Amino acid sequence: MLTDNHGRTISYLRLAVTDRCNLRCFYCMPEHGLDWLSRTELMSNAEMLRICSLLVKMGIDKIRITGGEPFVRKDIMELLTSLSQLKGLKDLSITTNGILTAPFVPQLKALGVKSVNLSLDTLDANRFFTITRRDEFDAVMLTLDTLLSHGIEVKINTVVMAGKNTQDIPALVALTKDRPVSVRFIEEMPFNGEGHDYSGVLWNHLHILQEIKNLYPDLQKTTDTQFSTAYNYQVPGHTGSVGIIAAYSRTFCGTCNRIRLTPSGMLKNCLYDDGVLNIKDHLRAGTNDEQLEQILLKAFNNREIDGWAAAEKRIASPNESMASIGG
């Protein structure tokens, strides 16, 4: 078992394979996009597979592929195929915006991908365009239907934003009535790439919960899994469930079991830290696996107690993009 200096288990890697995305969601990046990493700045498939293999041997048993948008990376299926074959890896999952995903769903099923997180902030096509600056709503809904038809668990990730999509909360909760989906409402975070105001404080997890309870007074609390970042609920009689993630309030830090690798190879012990070491640089400098394991263990034994402590030590601007952090 891999643990940190606070006795917390580390078993979950979020691996961002690219910073590029085919949407321009205003809460994630500027309208014109970002200064994308060059191909040489990105980790190669071989580099990602090597570090993932080592981390699985050390105790990581869950890997989630994120971005940017993972499916804009041309060789993503090659990487997923290799990762699915790692001995000791119990859970390989993906977070996607769903635009390019539908054609790959049968392959994902065959590889053993059991869960996909689908980013969807509204069920209204016009608001979708306003939020994402792209007309791709139908493609995302096709991916949702395709995933469900193949029996893949779907968690819908909805960032709650004042003045943008709070009116969508009723429709999104209603989506769980007849569909086996988990709709997770997420507090907005400050990582929008340009520093505009965000609503993580106003629409915090308590406000979101009260909004749902106003609609469904009989909302029932369900059991949260050991490392869950969401507070989970169910409307009686509904097939699916509802979750609320206190991403800005950071109420789940005490049980955090995750680490992150950015597209450029930066290890992050916490979403809110600057990054603690660049693994890609060590790989390219010829560091062997035994040396790399010791370097990683040292980093894991210097994790901050929570996201607030990590943020206090930041040097970089807190207004970087989630696409560059790894969603």
Rank of each mutant, 00 (worst) to 15 (best):
N45L: 05
F26V: 07
L37H: 13
L54M: 12
I51Q: 06
L42A: 00
L42Y: 04
G33P: 01
L49A: 13
C28D: 10
F26N: 05
W36E: 11
I63Q: 03
A16W: 14
C28V: 06
A16F: 10
R50V: 07
S44E: 01
M58S: 04
L37K: 08
N22D: 15
G59E: 07
N22S: 10
D19H: 11
A46R: 14
H32C: 03
Y27Q: 08
V56L: 06
W36G: 05
K62P: 00
A16M: 12
I60Y: 11
L23F: 15
G59L: 06
T40L: 03
P30K: 12
L55R: 11
T18Q: 10
H32R: 14
S44A: 09
T40P: 00
N45C: 10
D19M: 07
F26W: 14
M48W: 10
R64P: 00
S53P: 04
S38C: 04
H32K: 15
E41W: 07
M29N: 10
A16G: 14
L34S: 05
L37A: 11
K62Q: 05
I60T: 09
H32P: 00
N22K: 08
I63D: 01
A16T: 04
G67K: 04
N22W: 13
N22G: 13
D61P: 01
N22F: 13
P30Q: 09
R39C: 01
L55M: 15
A16K: 13
L37W: 07
K57M: 04
D19G: 13
C25T: 13
I60L: 11
G59S: 04
M43G: 03
N22T: 10
S53L: 02
M43I: 05
S53D: 13
G59P: 04
R20I: 09
D19Q: 08
